[in-house]
Design a binder for these strands. Sequence first.
DNA 1: CGCTTCCTTGAGACGGTTCAAGAATTGTGG
DNA 2: CCACAATTCTTGAACCGTCTCAAGGAAGCG
Lengths: 257, 257
Amino acid sequence: MRNDLPTADAIAGKPRLDVHNSDVPVVCRACEARHRGICGALTPQELTRLSRHTVKQTVAGDGAIVSSGEDFRHYSNILAGVVKLTRLMADGRQQIVGLQFAPDFVGRPFRSFSETTAEAATDVKLCSFPKQVMDEMIAHSPDLERRLYQQALDELDEAREWIFALGRKTAAEKVASFLLMIAENVDPEAPSGDRPIRFEIPLKRADIADFLGLTIETVSRQITRLRKAGVIVVENNRTVTVPDLERLRARCEVDAA
Amino acid sequence: MRNDLPTADAIAGKPRLDVHNSDVPVVCRACEARHRGICGALTPQELTRLSRHTVKQTVAGDGAIVSSGEDFRHYSNILAGVVKLTRLMADGRQQIVGLQFAPDFVGRPFRSFSETTAEAATDVKLCSFPKQVMDEMIAHSPDLERRLYQQALDELDEAREWIFALGRKTAAEKVASFLLMIAENVDPEAPSGDRPIRFEIPLKRADIADFLGLTIETVSRQITRLRKAGVIVVENNRTVTVPDLERLRARCEVDAA
DNA sequence: CGCTTCCTTGAGACGGTTCAAGAATTGTGG
DNA sequence: CCACAATTCTTGAACCGTCTCAAGGAAGCG
């Protein structure tokens, strides 16, 4: 299989050195999912077993990972990139119902069916493995299940955060909240730091709109407003600098005119 | 270890008759949570242990169960009634981010803090127990953890369903979707049945509005519209009959003029 | 019966959408 | 490296759905 892939660490930028690597499959060494992700709950033996069925793959932007209604047979770990979970109505209305980042687990245990589609928002690197093998491991490893449970709870918290935003925030507040979420995801250690934060927005305007329940035009207008107010500095549509995170945070709750 | 456990069925919602009730604590006999809820994963011994710390209580409508920011020390099972999970903004804007029904588990394992408030939407009967005891049981019972995980996944699915509704549905579609959700919750066995379904809406207009991201007035107008169109028959504001569930379902996706 | 709470209905205002045009950016082949 | 096409993003003007404000009616409760 592909064992020459220089995978995961690049994402968080923290290469990590294990002293005792001898038992760990080659493909898994230096993989972020093994530390922060669910694979961290697996023993070297389990890891070895799983790695035998593992396929690493890259999905280009807007490419499908799991299609709605599909009887999927694989789970994945995100090694790099951003995955969007979307829902589509018959008349074309679309909504992003969740965003996932490395090293999140993609899949729905206890079901092989879902109304939700998983698509690559950016180019995405995945580590995929058969549902069947994983399901069996889940059944036998309480540690693994605990990690999955914790991720589910975190996603539930996030989902409710966005329910709140979608239901009660104005367009301006929604866009500010979205940018803040991305900024915090990029740099989790600097929540209150007053040094500028520079990052790439992993979504295009159309995706931001689908995430926030707005139109492309409204998103664009609100970003312009934030730019003109000096809350953000826009480099090339995707790249943004936030000089003062607190000013951005203030925009998430007050519909500053 | 546990070889006498009648676990699996409960998940699928099949009420189950226990022949051997002798070991089960008196308070737990005839409790729905022991069958369909998480307690079904516990052995009689565990059940006995937990029941020693158990308090059954009733919370009147709009009463607090867990307040936002509170360092809560108890979990609960819902025995009857409806619980609303809400978020509040500084300026008073409010949003219901989740609804829970019997026999759902209320609480947030792995955290003792949450931005979310749990309130009684109707009068609610609860079975509460100390977080500490439960956390320990979770740590030692993979079956229990699995049930909690499954509930979390189900809630996540639901949350995403509503993210979709909040982001992309019109007021008319939102109200129809809400009524459908309640109707299906009341009578899960008759999803496609064409006989009329009669039920009580467990929320007042203000709560429906907070759930759907609308105002009271808009909710009221849309209910009136559905009534005038013959999709629903309103008895006394709370009590509603749906003559044809399919007609209601059709209203959830098409903004019928 | 009178109080409070809850619900309905109307008229006008406003935020976000729709429709339309054009600018900026990215990708591609010569 | 440039010319061209495709995609993505921005901006403006008119429209529409929902909100806001206001009043009154119905239901629940002492």
